[in-house]
C-alpha cells in the first residue's frame, strides 16, 4: 500500500475533525477503489471504499447523505447536499450548495 509508512499504529489516509462530521478530508491523493481509512476521536479505525478519485485535502462522504441534508465538517453545517451523495463519493462544489444565512 502507498500509505503504509504513515502511522506506526494505524494506517490512515484521511482525517475526521469531529465525530459528528459526515465527511473526512483525505491527506493524500486517493484513487477510485482505494480504501480510505480514518480514526474516530476515540481511536477506532473506520474503512470506506472510494467510489471516485479524490484529490489531496478534498472531502469524501463517510455516510450516505440525501439531497437537501447538511454536509457536516468541524461538527457544523458547511452546506447542503445538492444531490444524493453516497458513502465514498467526492464532496465538493459539484454536489454541495452553500446555505449561507441571508443576514
Amino acid at each position: 500500500m502507498r500509505y503504509k509508512e504513515r502511522r506506526y499504529f494505524t494506517v490512515v489516509n484521511a482525517i475526521l475533525i469531529d465525530d459528528k462530521d459526515n465527511v473526512v478530508s483525505v491527506i493524500e491523493q486517493v484513487l477510485k477503489g482505494d480504501d480510505v481509512i480514518f480514526e474516530t476521536k476515540n481511536g477506532k479505525a473506520i474503512t470506506i471504499k472510494a467510489l471516485e478519485d479524490i484529490p489531496i485535502y478534498h472531502k469524501i462522504a463517510v455516510r450516505d447523505i440525501v439531497e437537501g441534508s447538511y454536509i457536516i465538517k468541524y461538527g457544523e453545517h458547511i452546506g447542503v447536499a445538492a444531490t444524493d451523495i453516497k458513502t465514498g463519493m467526492h464532496v465538493h462544489e459539484h454536489n454541495v450548495r452553500s446555505v449561507r444565512e441571508n443576514l
Binding site: 472531502k59 468541524y74 453545517h77 458547511i78 452546506g79 464532496v91 462544489e93 446555505v99 449561507r100
Partner: peptide, 14 residues
Amino acid sequence: KAGGITTLEEKSLG
C-alpha cells in the same frame, strides 16, 4: 477551492 474548500462557511470554520 483547488485545495478542497467548498463553501465560505467551511473556510471560515477552519
